[in-house]
Amino acid sequence: MQKFSFNRRLVIIIVCLIVSFALMTVSVVIRNKRSTPPLIQQFGNDIVGLADRVVALPANGLSGSVSSVSELLNTYQENQQLKKQVSELAQTKVRDQTLAKENKQLKQQVKLNDSLTDYTAISAAVITRTPSSWQNQVVINKGSSAGVQKNMPVMSGSGLIGRVAEVNKTNSKVELITDNNDSANRFAVQITTKSGTTVNGVLSGYKSATGQITMNNITTKAKIHKGDKVVTSGLGGVTPKGLYVGKVAETGGDDYGLSTKLYITPATDLTDLNIVTVAVTKQ
């Protein structure tokens, strides 16, 4: 009788597949549930992050000098445009200061220490970006030792860009709002319409063809106009209230005609990130 012979290569392939699937599943679960990755992974990431700074520093410096030369060319035009904006800004800033002071005094009177709008900022530099088309992530150079925690919102320039997905000791990964995966955190946002009503909703994804964020779960009948500003509502979690997300670009019904679906133009250019700010809420 012929002896039953195993094809050794096939066995190796199947074992590899099974181990791969098991590892992927475990790491996805860990990533979604735990606040920090396992100690070994954290340690490894910190060391690689350190090595990465050695490579990233000259690379970023080179790109910085190249871009500063190209920026020099349209400085004159930009300067004229910006001058106009600055004069308007000064007015807004003074008013903002007065309002903030008044707000503080009023809060003291009603003995309210921290409301949803209070947060402190940690600024960080972007070291590198994940070279993958499936994950829109950047690695920033601040970690748990600087006070960064998982799920904190991250801003750049004038608007929200994402949330902290993984925290190591000296660096952390930021998942951008352009990331479309299932487990990506959906920010709770609100719109104050021109008539003064507040509309609540949830950011639900990214439409890559037009570069717009989609907002879902809107059930009110309030009229939303193009150009209305979208800010975070501070509901349900670590995101403070009042972080700017973007402007409404287009309104429409959802696939079933039950609720309204909005398309939002993000406030910041999400492909050009150098310095970001992590918003820390006091809890």
């Binding site: 972007v126 590198t128 088309s133």
Partner: peptide, 22 residues
């Protein structure tokens, strides 16, 4: 590490959604 740095520096060219170059 250069892979990541290139993706970061040229992100406006390489991650020009919907087309992505890795």
């Amino acid at each position: 590490l250069l892979d990541g740095s290139l993706s970061h520096i040229f992100s406006s060219q390489m991650f020009n959604y919907p087309t992505v170059m890795v």
